[in-house]
Every structure is written in C-alpha cells, then in structure tokens.
Design a binder for these strands. Structure first.
Length: 608
DNA sequence: CAAAGCGTTGAAACG
DNA sequence: CCGTTTCAACGCTTT
C-alpha cells in the first residue's frame, strides 16, 4: 500500500470555473484540509494560438481571472490565482515535482480537446502517484449521464433532455454550495519560486489569432510569466491594442453575481421571461440577461442560476402567479444548453464538424470544409475550406464584415464584432442568412466567425445552434426562413437598432431603413449617405473621389430570389438524405449524388 | 400554398 | 378471448 501523506499539498487547477461560489471541485479540494493549497491557471498555448479568440473575449477572460485572484487575496493575503505559462501536459509534472503536490483537483471540462487533455493529465498524474479528483460543476447534469439515460445516443430534443434528466435526481440538479470562507496558504515565497525550473517553450505555428497581434507577443518567455510573478497576462503581453477592445461587457465572478442578483430581484422579469418574446433589437439594456459569457468562463455557476430562478418560480406559484413554461422560460434555456453538452459528449471531436458526424445532415453548401486528410497534407497554415464559388466567398466576407447591404444583418454583425455579443434571435437571423436563407454557405464558416467574436463562445452551444439554424440537426423546418427585412421591421420598427450600429444610415427615414436602396437618390443625398458599391474600403474611396462623403452598400443579392434558390436546394439535399458519416461524404463522391461532379461543358448541355 | 421528422396514440392485425 | 405488435394518423416542434 502506498504511503499517503497526512498533510495534503493540493494543486487546484482552474479552467472554465473562474469562481469561488458553488464549485463542487473547489469545495472538495478544501475539504481535504490541505497544509498547502495552490490555485493555478495554465495559460495553455493551445487556447492562445489554436482556438479562435477575438479581443473582447481575451479581455473577458482576463477580467474573470483578475476578479478571482482578488477574491483569493481577500480570503488570504498570501493567496492569488497563480498563472503558469506553458501547456498543461508539460508544465503540470514540473509543478508536482517542484511543489511536492499530493492531490490535483479540477472541475470536469466538456469539449473534446479539454477531455483529451484531462485524460492525458490524469494518466501522467497516475504515473507520478498524484491523486486526482474530478467533479462535475459546469452543467446541471453530468452530460455523460444524460447520454447514458438516452440509450447512449445524443439527445436531440427538449423532451429527450427532460426524460433523461428526470432519471437523475428526478430532474432536480444539486443545490448550489456556498463559497469558502477561508483558504489555506500556498508555500512560502522561496518554495513557490520556479526560476530554477526549465521553461519548455511553445509552438506558435498556425496562430489563428495572429491578425489581432498589433504589438509584440510577449506571453511566453518563462513559466512564471514575463515579470516572474505568476501574474495574469495583460492585453499588451498578448499583443492586443487597447483600442481593439470595444465592447461594454465585462467579466468576473463579482460582476456575474451582481447581474444575477439584479434580475432575481425583478420577480416579474424572471417569472414571465420567454425567450421568443425578448427583443433582438434592444440595447442599453438588452432584453436578455447576458449571463452566457459568465456561464462559459464559470464566473457564474449554472446551478446557482437555475435554483435562484426556481426559487422565484416557487414563490410566485404560492402567490398564484403564472410562470412562463418550459422550454421558453429561463430554466428551459439552461436545458437547451444541457442538450448541446450531451450531444457533444456523445460524439467527441466528430460533433464539431460535418465530416464523420452521423447526427448532421449533409447539404451541398458553398465553402465546404476541407477533409482532415486535406488539412493534414496542407499543414497548419492551410485555408480551412474550399472556395468552390468566388461569389459565395465574396458574400461570406461581406456577411462577416457587416457590409451585405441588408442593414438588419449588417447591424447585427457589426454589434457582434464590436461588442462580442448579440441577442439569440439576432444570431438566428444572421445564421439563417449565411446558410439556408441567403448565401448557401456552410454553417461551419459561420461557426468559426462566432467562435472568434462571441465572448460567450461555448463549443457545444455554438456548434449545436449552427446545426439548428442551418437545419442540419436538431431542427428541420427549413421552409421557415428569416427575412432580413420583415424580421428586422418586426423587432425594430423605428430602426433605432440599425441606426446605432450602421450610423451611416442614421438619418434615413424608418420607411427605408431596412431597404435603403429603395430610397430616392434625392433623399439619399438629403440624408447624407449614398447607397452604392459593396461597402469595401476601395468602393468607399471611389465614391469619396466623386464627392460622396458617406456610402452604404447596395444589397449583395436579391433576397427573395436567394430564398427561393435556397429552399429548392434544401429540399433537394433533404431528398438525397446524406449525413456526415455517409461514405459519399467521407470520400468526396457526394458531388455525384448532387449532380455537380460533371465537367462544366456537360453541365451546360444538361441545363438545356 | 406546401415543404420534415419525432413521439404519442389508438385501432387493427396478429399469434 | 387476450396480450402483443404494427402502423397510420396526428400533434408538436423555443422564436
């Protein structure tokens, strides 16, 4: 039998659980009565260079880390969040050795990369004789358990989630746990110092976020950080200029708890909240809670959110007040999250893409992802998709940059880029527009843009929602299509939302605000903005030479024409009925099934 | 104007 | 006659 030290030296590994309240893993770690307790964050180069992360999310993460670190220091002046700069697989064994660690504790993570990483770490720890404790705390239910309760299949509907959830504690997640009132000391300064430990270096090749680095990247030089103090990275170290971070949304557990408490106080809001009735055009304040980024970084516990809302529901029920029903109410929103986590858990890496994914319908989109084999051949700097149509590529770029010429779409995309958040229904609008209701571009392109810009980016929810909106999984009523004109008018009848994010249209009458190209040229002149060109820098400059100060692009296509095209194409693709794991998709012969594998000359003949 | 698909239900068929 | 299986019809899909 192995000798167990009586005084545990506990390494607590924070990842997407940047909080002290309701953390089963942290509570367990402290219940070991550690003689030494070291809460760390590993600044993982995988996330830094190989996940798409825009400036707003970087700041949100740094906010969250700073807030947590401060909370630790408040509990114990010797404590903070100790940030180490290196990949976990190489740096953790160094820490175990240098600090004489006996226990490693962390919260179960959810996406495929994180689960692989954790499995690797656990194997290493076992070899080194470190005891590892993992607790579920990121979701209401253990996603693996939801899958097991659904006959091992990914859950694809709300009723399946409820049924599978009912088998766990009768559908009632555990109540939240209080934050600790104290934390033990780390080692003394001398023993904490890792100056003598060799820095392993990092692989920077294929940096997906290189475009944001306007300053020198100084994140990695030593394990203890450039200042040697285990400090939280700064935006300057990451190479991001302050002026790139425009959004108003800030991170941190104390911010999250304050926001939640504010909503909980408003019992009418909590009790009557129905997502479909909240406006995607509302800003300052927005119509939903905006707690999603806090759920992502774990600065808010989902169980705390769930039970605080349930308690308001119970109170209202006693008072004989109606509560909004599942799935449109707040708990329902959290259950959708569970559905996506469980689908991800069931499929692993395959969940993230079409290729090899049995749950996702195959559609002959433009800008299809390259296969893993193609990407392997082309190396880490490869373009991730095929440009099968220069026109579709142009549409995709214009969508991304908010210059489609449809003000509703452009306002949303600009809000997304500037602030890192848009309302759920706004996401529906732009996602439908890019895929089945406009551009007919692969949902995987859209998911990559959302991954980059959303401060609340969560792999499972992002991928799941893109499948939903593109009608490739979870949802299939492709004939229900969002119109960028009438849907905008419905939610923003005065056009205020459009005017805020497309300020060049600020003076346009509401009659034309969603279709500015229909405004007479005299009015366009009067309102100080000509509808012309494609919104690119070149096209704007050209107009300026002609004396037009401001321009807004013409619509990049006729929407009704595109809607008809897309619906016919979706109907065709549905009737062909391929899925991501079908042979034709894996070996590229799907083109034949769709009749687009022929030589161009043959195709022309056929068209006649 | 209709397009899809899942789960439920209840009647009919079956053994 | 009864219990079981099958299948078509129907209602519901967060927006």
């Amino acid at each position: 039998m192995k000798h167990k030290p009586t005084t545990p030296v506990v390494l607590y590994w924070h990842r997407t659980d940047l909080r002290l309240h309701d953390s089963p893993a942290l509570t367990t770690a402290l219940s070991l009565k550690p003689s030494v307790f070291i809460p760390i964050w590993t600044w993982d180069p995988h996330y830094v260079y190989h996940a798409r992360v825009g400036p707003n999310r970087w700041r949100f993460l740094l906010d969250s880390q700073k807030d947590l670190s401060k909370s630790y220091t408040t509990l114990n002046p010797k404590q903070k969040l100790w940030v180490v700069r290196e990949g976990p697989m190489t740096v953790l064994p160094k820490l175990w050795k240098a600090w004489g660690i006996t226990h490693l504790v962390f919260e179960q993570d959810t996406d495929a990369y994180a689960r692989d990483r954790d499995e690797g770490v656990m194997k290493l720890a076992e070899k080194e004789g470190i005891e590892v404790i993992v607790k579920v705390g990121r979701t209401l239910f253990d996603p693996d358990m939801l899958v097991r309760n659904n006959q091992g299949k990914p859950v694809v509907s709300m009723s399946q989630v409820e049924k599978a959830g009912d088998k766990i504690n009768g559908g009632r997640p555990d109540r939240p746990i209080d934050a600790p009132g104290s934390v033990p000391d780390p080692w003394n300064e001398e023993r904490m110092d890792l100056s003598g430990v060799e820095f392993g270096g990092v692989e920077v090749e294929g940096d997906l976020n290189a475009a944001y680095r306007v300053e020198e990247d100084r994140q990695y030089s030593r394990i203890m950080g450039p200042k040697g103090d285990f400090g939280i990275p700064t935006l300057e170290e990451i190479g991001i200029g302050e002026d790139q971070v425009e959004g108003p949304h800030r991170g941190g557990e104390s911010v999250a708890l304050k926001i939640l408490a504010g909503y909980i106080e408003d019992e009418e809001y909590i009790g009557t909240f129905e997502k479909p009735n909240t406006s995607p055009a509302a800003f300052e304040p927005q119509s939903t809670t905006l707690l999603s980024p806090h759920l992502h970084f774990g600065s808010l516990s989902v169980r705390k959110f769930f039970w605080d809302v349930q308690d308001v529901f119970s109170k209202r029920k006693k008072e004989k007040k109606q509560n909004a029903p599942i799935p449109t109410n707040l708990p329902g929103q959290l259950l959708f999250r569970e559905m996506y986590f469980a689908a991800q858990a069931a499929l692993g890496y395959k969940f993230q893409r079409t290729y090899g994914n049995k749950m996702v319908r195959f559609i002959d989109w433009h800008l299809q992802s390259k296969t893993p084999e193609e990407l392997e051949k082309e190396g880490p700097t490869a373009q991730p998709y095929h440009v099968d149509s220069p026109e579709a590529e142009e549409w995709f770029q214009r969508w991304r940059e908010g210059r489609t010429g449809f003000p509703w779409i452009d306002a949303l995309m600009r809000q997304l880029k500037q602030e890192g958040w848009i309302h759920h229904l706004g996401r529906h609008s732009v996602a439908c527009f890019l895929t089945r209701g406009g551009c007919y571009v692969s949902w995987e392109r859209g998911a990559e843009v959302f991954e980059e810009w959303l401060i609340d980016h969560e792999m499972a929810s992002n991928i799941g929602n893109w499948m939903w909106l593109s009608c490739t999984a979870f949802y299939n009523q492709y004939y229900r299509c969002y119109s960028p004109i009438s849907f905008g008018k419905k939610w923003d009848p005065q056009g205020d939302f459009v005017r805020k994010y497309c300020p060049e249209l600020a003076k346009f009458d509401k009659k034309y605000i969603f279709e500015p190209w229909k405004a007479p040229i005299a009015d366009q002149r009067k309102w100080g903005c000509r509808i012309s060109g494609d919104g690119s820098v070149e096209s704007k400059e050209k107009m300026q030479e002609q004396g037009e100060e401001q321009t807004y692009p013409k619509p990049m296509f006729d929407f009704d024409e595109r809607r008809t095209f897309c619906m016919d194409a979706m109907k065709n693709a549905y009737s062909i009925g391929l899925h991501g794991d079908d042979r034709e998709v894996l070996n590229g012969t799907w083109r034949k099934a769709f009749g687009i594998d022929e030589e161009p000359s043959k195709k022309k003949q056929k068209a006649k």
